[in-house]
């Protein structure tokens, strides 16, 4: 996974609460056995009608948001299914940062394992960002080292993130390689652990 220290990009606003992973990547695309190529199916049922034509009323189809890499959403973002295909699709589509007032636990984890930074901001702050991005093309900078989100016209907010996922993202570490340095601990544990 690539390291992520700071990212500047175009903001796409998705002003909905409880965006579930079934919306992010519908089940008909979960049959593939590779990690790549899911971006084309991102938000498929919102982006396309049942004849696979783009829905003009869905904002992500608007040219204004082409090349957006920061998504700002509503509360409980990524709820529902644990499918990691959701962050794979977001990442493949070009999103590096997801900002929301709250995230579902599994989705949050899955993002950090794929080089996507989930940022929790206050509802008033996300609403401000959504308003800005709906009005015009709007760029933000997200800095994981200083844990700040800012634009060049005066918006600035701080966010909290646990140190563990932060270090993983900052360094782009392979988690399994890290864990395997604890192999002796695991082996010792297994010797005394009772499972029926």
């Amino acid at each position: 996974m690539d390291a992520l220290k700071q990212h500047k990009g175009l903001v796409y606003p998705l002003n909905r609460a409880n965006v579930d992973t079934d919306q992010i990547i519908p089940k008909q695309f979960l049959k593939r056995i590779s990690r790549q190529g899911f971006g084309q199916y991102l938000f498929y049922n919102w982006r396309y009608d049942d004849k696979d034509h783009p829905r003009p009323d869905f904002s992500l189809n608007h040219p204004k948001y082409e090349n957006a890499s920061i998504l700002v959403g509503g509360e409980n973002f990524g709820c529902g299914s644990s499918r990691e295909h959701a962050p794979w699709a977001l990442e493949d589509f070009g999103f590096k940062i997801i900002i929301a007032p709250s995230f579902a636990d599994i989705f949050f984890n899955n993002c950090t394992k794929n080089g996507i930074l989930p940022v929790v901001l206050k509802e008033a702050e996300t609403q401000q960002l959504i308003k800005n991005a709906e009005a015009d093309q709007y760029h933000l900078t997200v800095d994981l080292e200083t844990k700040k989100v800012y634009d060049n016209v005066g918006f600035e907010a701080s966010f909290e993130i646990a140190d563990y996922p932060r270090q993983m993202l900052l360094n782009g570490w392979d988690e399994i390689s890290v864990t395997l340095t604890y192999e002796d601990n695991i082996t010792a544990f297994e010797k005394n652990h009772i499972v029926y």
Binding site: R35, S82, R83, E84, P87, I106, N109, N110, K113, N114, A162, Y164, E175, I176, T179, L180, Y182, E183, I186, E190
Partner: peptide, 20 residues
């Protein structure tokens, strides 16, 4: 509890998972 595919790989390889 449910996990994503990266964690599936992690558990297959190490039989453990990092959890707060």
């Amino acid at each position: 509890f449910g996990i994503g595919t990266s964690e599936v790989e992690h558990v297959l390889a190490t039989q453990t998972i990092w959890q707060a």
